[in-house]
Design a protein around this nucleic acid. Structure first.
Length: 181
DNA sequence: TTCTGGATTGTCT
DNA sequence: GACAATCCAGAAC
C-alpha cells in the first residue's frame, strides 16, 4: 500500500496493520509488535480538547511522528493518522542495533529493551526533538508489513478514560509485548 | 503566576 | 502487588 494512504485512515485500522512492520530510528529498531489507537473523538486522546502547541502535530498531515513526555520522565512515540488521531507505539521486537539499545537501556535482557512506550523511546534514543519528523525520511525508516499478521485485540493500558474500548493491538504469540492480553 | 494530573517505569515489600 | 519518582502542558486565577 502507498505510504501516505496507509496513514490517512482511521487509527484503529492503521494500528492493526502496523503490527509486523519493520521500524528503525538511526538504524536502531525492529518489528512493531504492539500498538494502541487514539481517534479524534477519544477522551483519552491528546487531541480531544482541541489543538494546542504540544499536540499540533496530531492535527497536521498523516505519516509523521508525534513525541511527547509522559509523567515527566518518559518519552512516548506516536504515528499521526487521519487528522486529530494517532497510533501509540507500545512495543517493538529488537532486531537492529542491539548493542546501542542495550547500552542506552543499561541492560541486556532482550525482552526488556522495548516492551513499553517509555522503554522503546529510551532504547531507540527518541526524544522530544523528534516531534513532527516525517516517518518516511531519515532518521526514521519504516517498512510496511507484507500481508496481515495474526493479532490480539484488547482494552488499552495506562489511561483513565475510555479504558474499555478494544483499541490495543498486539502480535499474537510475541514474547515482546508490554503486558499480556 | 500558580496548580494539577498524567497514553509509565523501576524498586521495594 | 503497591507505590514513589519527576516535570511539563494546560487550565485556572
Amino acid at each position: 500500500m502507498d505510504f501516505s494512504k496507509f496513514f490517512a485512515r482511521s487509527p484503529a485500522d492503521v494500528a492493526g496493520d502496523l503490527i509486523g512492520a519493520h521500524m528503525t530510528y538511526r538504524g536502531v529498531g525492529g518489528i512493531i509488535v504492539e500498538t494502541e489507537a487514539y481517534h479524534r473523538a477519544d477522551p483519552a486522546s491528546h487531541s480531544f480538547n482541541g489543538r494546542t502547541p504540544r499536540n499540533s502535530v496530531m492535527f497536521g498531515p498523516p505519516g509523521y511522528a508525534y513525541v511527547y513526555r509522559s509523567y515527566g520522565i518518559h518519552w512516548c512515540l506516536n504515528f499521526v493518522c487521519e487528522p486529530a488521531s494517532a497510533v501509540l507505539i507500545r512495543a517493538v521486537e529488537p532486531r537492529d542495533g542491539l548493542g546501542a539499545m542495550e547500552e542506552r537501556r543499561g541492560m541486556t535482557a532482550l525482552r526488556m529493551l522495548c516492551s513499553g512506550p517509555g522503554r522503546l523511546c529510551q532504547a531507540l534514543g527518541i526524544s522530544g526533538d523528534d516531534n513532527g519528523l516525517p516517518l518516511d525520511a531519515p532518521p526514521f525508516a519504516l517498512a510496511l508489513p507484507q500481508g496481515a499478521a495474526p493479532l490480539h485485540v484488547g482494552p488499552r493500558i495506562g489511561i483513565t478514560k475510555a479504558v474499555d474500548e478494544p483499541l490495543r493491538f498486539g502480535l499474537k504469540g510475541s514474547a515482546f509485548l508490554s503486558k499480556k492480553f
